[in-house]
Design a protein around this nucleic acid. Sequence first.
DNA 1: ACCTGAACACCGTTCAAGT
DNA 2: ACCTGAACACCGTTCAAGT
Lengths: 233, 233
Amino acid sequence: MVNAGKPLPGRSGRPRAGEERLSRHAILEAALRIVDTEGLEAMTMRRLASTLGVNPMSIYHHLPNKAAVFAGLAELVFAQLESTPPDDSVPWKDELKTAAAAYRDALRAHPNLALQILSDTSAVSDVVVVVVEPFYRSLDRAGADPRQIVEAVNTIIDFIHGFSLGEASVRAETFDLAPDLLARVSALPPGKAPTLVRVVTELGAEGLAYDFDTGFATGIALLVDGIATRFAL
Amino acid sequence: MVNAGKPLPGRSGRPRAGEERLSRHAILEAALRIVDTEGLEAMTMRRLASTLGVNPMSIYHHLPNKAAVFAGLAELVFAQLESTPPDDSVPWKDELKTAAAAYRDALRAHPNLALQILSDTSAVSDVVVVVVEPFYRSLDRAGADPRQIVEAVNTIIDFIHGFSLGEASVRAETFDLAPDLLARVSALPPGKAPTLVRVVTELGAEGLAYDFDTGFATGIALLVDGIATRFAL
DNA sequence: ACCTGAACACCGTTCAAGT
DNA sequence: ACCTGAACACCGTTCAAGT
């Protein structure tokens, strides 16, 4: 399948009006499809051009370079984050949890891309500013002061990033690591990590079956309780 | 400086006993130096060979491929994590905070590598198992049950990963984003993020000057308080 | 303006050959 | 066993040329 989407012959030069084959948006859509189906490293400029049926260089008339393509993809992903409308009837803790879940969902929708997004500051910072409003709103409503709001939101966002990183990595893997973990822990040199070994064996294989959804809910709940306790909200 | 470290001529074939130029360890040390000083993408097999004064292919006799080099680097970094000895005289909350700080420090020591480590599951999972013992110990001492311990530790680790990702990214950047943030927020369309705008302007430029150390301490404190509250420890 | 072809300066890795 | 040279199948991007 190396030559799939090879450029059509006999169609070089500027296309006639209304038959442009390329646009920033079309390029980004194609790029996202490659990333989703074949992974990050499959998304090369040459491969992208090939699926668009176009010369590799044509892309550079719409996006300055490969980094810009990835930045554009990050934009696309965050744009899909549905903004929760303000609703003062729901308790602030629930509003916070809803915002957290929405943010996680946006990152989870494209696991192969999450990795790239989270490690590319320039891609994130432009959009994260807007994404963050519902977090600010609920904490403001809870009565936290500006300093506390910033600290709490930063912490929640960091947790979501770390969680999503783990979630995306496992999604990208082929093998199942739940029983793997049990095996690896059992194989540890005896004195090395006694508490870990005891806890893991006490839980057993079925107790270790990790569920990302409840893992996320628990993490957020711990954080929200911590915020309420520490800031007396 | 393209040809720095070009292979010495007239020295091909197997070296005589005791004059091996290469070893897994020497290769990894050189690789780490490249990553630290010039960044992740500067670390190519050819560049690595060149700084070692060796043919690119020689490396493959000690490490199977580039991924193995990065996995080896992750190993190196985690190996530098000093293990805190058990100390039951200190409160469990403090022991937890110490473990968190040590883990963060290990990731922070090589910011360019942190990104790679955190996004490479296979690199982490082998070592993180051991790293995690002090967290388990302190929570066990606090009286948490196995289920609670696992949930709490996962949450703390995820937070540290997300925090370190942000810290490493900013370190890798050249520009200062504190005043940048203020400018960007002010430029936002009026109705878009009212709470964010109000909080940020109330804090002002000096209030926003972000300090990673206190940011980390606050995050961990929130988490620890949440654990204590939710699990009634 | 938009697209192309050829070229430049790189990659990681295989394979057969040297000592 | 360990190292090398040449080669393969790729990269991202520049630049001059086409329409």
